[in-house]
Each structure stands twice: as C-alpha cells, then as structure tokens.
C-alpha cells in the first residue's frame, strides 16, 4: 500500500482522530491525536494489509517557537515493504503521550531515550527512567533552551 492509501484506511477507521496528512515528508507522515496512538498502532500492526511489523525508530522533536513537542514514530513493514511516519503533537509545558511498548516491545528503550533527552512522559510505561544520562542529571538536554551545566559532582563541566 502506498502512504495515501494507508492514510485513507486510517481515516476511515479512526474518524476524527486523524488530523493531517503530510505528503512532502519522506516517508509521508500522518498526524494523529495523541490519546489515540495506542489504538492506531495496534491496528497498524494487526491488520493484514498493513502489518507494520516493526517500529523502526521513535524521535522527539522540540518545536520551541510553536510551543509544541513532537513525537515521531517511524514504522515499517517487512512483509509489504512500506513505511510511514506517525506524528503526535504535544503541549511543550506538559508533554505526555501513552506508551506503545505493548505493541512493539522495542519501543521501551526509545521512549526512555525521548524521556531522558526531552522530558516527554510516556504514560503507563513500565520503566520510565533516564537511559543515557546519569540519574542525578538535571534538565532535558535536547530541548532548544537547555543551558549547559557548569559543574557536575566534584569537577567542572
């Protein structure tokens, strides 16, 4: 299926919860409501014509000027060889979105990473801790307004 058809299938199934279709990105992306993400993902994985076997990647993005955060799910199917990106838009002051680790267990670490670097909270995540930075690190370094620390433990940064 090409991205357009995937979008149409989704918008028929989830009327009102699919916000937008962006064709000029590569792969094409579908913007969805954040609280529908788990349903949409499990549908995408289960449905035989879609069968998104794996989550390729998950990235956070900080859109500071618009007061938003994005989470982008890149999904791919090995059987049908198609790809798509799902996007959810979050409030920058309180970014949170349900976890999809029940759908693809591999999402666990990606979500922890987005939490670690952006402070995006994944609701119902089984183990939401910092993953790359030490536990006592302060701040969310990948945010655009992050200020580098001066000192860490007993030495200058």
């Amino acid at each position: 299926m090409d991205a357009k058809q995937i979008y149409q299938t989704l918008s028929e199934k989830f009327t009102g919860r699919i916000k937008q279709f962006q064709e000029n990105t590569h792969p094409a992306s579908v913007v969805v409501e954040s609280d529908a993400i788990v349903d949409i993902c499990s549908f995408l994985k289960r449905e035989t014509e879609l069968e998104f076997t794996s989550m390729i990647s998950l990235s956070g993005v900080d859109l500071k000027d618009q007061g938003k955060m994005l989470v982008i799910y890149h999904l791919g199917s090995i059987r049908h060889k198609h790809k798509i990106a799902l996007k959810v838009e979050l409030d920058r002051n309180n970014p949170h979105v349900p976890t999809v680790e029940k759908v693809w267990p591999g999402a666990n670490w990606y979500e922890r990473e987005a939490y670690d670097l952006y402070g995006i909270v994944f609701d119902n995540h089984s183990d939401l801790r910092r993953i790359l930075l030490p536990d006592d690190w302060e701040g969310w370094p990948m945010r655009k307004d992050y200020v580098y620390p001066k000192r860490y433990h007993t030495w200058d940064v």
Binding site: L133, P141, Y146, Y148, P149, W155, D156, V157
Partner: peptide
C-alpha cells in the same frame, strides 16, 4: 557537548 569530561586530568 554537555556530556563529555574535558580531559581526564581533571579527575
């Protein structure tokens, strides 16, 4: 980089 120690002689 915010995460790298700037010379091991600091520790």
């Amino acid at each position: 980089s915010y995460a790298v120690l700037k010379g091991v002689d600091r520790i």
